[in-house]
Computed example of a mutant assay.
Amino acid sequence: MNPARSPARVEDVHALAAGMPHVTAVEGPKGNTVYQVGGKSFVFFRTPRPDARDPETGERYTDVIMFWVESEEDKDALVRDPSTPFFTTPHFDGHLSVLLRAAHLERISRDELAEIVQDAWLSRASQRRRERWLAGRA
């Protein structure tokens, strides 16, 4: 099987985010990893929060990953598409990000995850860095 088409894993999130240019991985206050470009987060491993809970048990999810998006339209497309595992909560109304539980990463391919991570990076990188990266891919 082509590894790019294989189901995405948490290790892939780390590898893809860390592999983008000018990225710094910082540790959040509770030991969670935050990937930044130019001091701006673009992929963020969340700590358990009251806004993301199991509907049956009420337990807070411990595996939520946040990805920044370029626009409300991009967010809406990901969240409203029932074929994707992306979601949001009222806490993130008006925030340009989507959430994904690590337990549901296998519902997307590594290729799809790479596109999400790249788009997250592009949404937060400076114009100069975006232009340089995109020109290098042409």
Rank of each mutant, 00 (worst) to 15 (best):
Y61P: 01
D63V: 07
I65A: 00
M66Y: 08
F67W: 09
V69K: 11
V69G: 11
E70D: 14
S71W: 06
S71Q: 06
E72K: 10
K75S: 10
K75W: 04
K75T: 07
D76M: 09
D76E: 15
L78P: 04
L78G: 07
V79T: 11
R80N: 13
D81V: 01
D81S: 06
P82Y: 02
P82N: 04
T84E: 04
F86I: 03
F87P: 03
F87Q: 04
T88W: 05
T89K: 11
P90F: 05
P90W: 03
H91C: 05
H91A: 15
H91T: 12
F92R: 13
D93E: 15
D93K: 14
D93H: 12
D93V: 15
G94I: 03
G94V: 04
L96G: 02
L96H: 10
L96I: 01
S97N: 12
V98M: 09
V98L: 09
V98G: 10
L99N: 12
L100K: 09
L100Y: 07
L100R: 08
R101G: 04
R101H: 02
R101S: 03
A102E: 11
A103V: 06
H104G: 00
L105F: 05
E106M: 08
E106A: 15
I108E: 05
D111N: 12
E112M: 08
A114T: 04
A114P: 02
I116P: 03
I116K: 13
V117R: 01
V117M: 03
Q118Y: 12
Q118D: 09
D119M: 10
D119R: 15
D119A: 13
A120E: 07
W121H: 00
S126C: 05
Q127D: 14
R128K: 14
R129G: 00
R130I: 02
R130Q: 12
E131T: 12
R132C: 03
W133S: 11
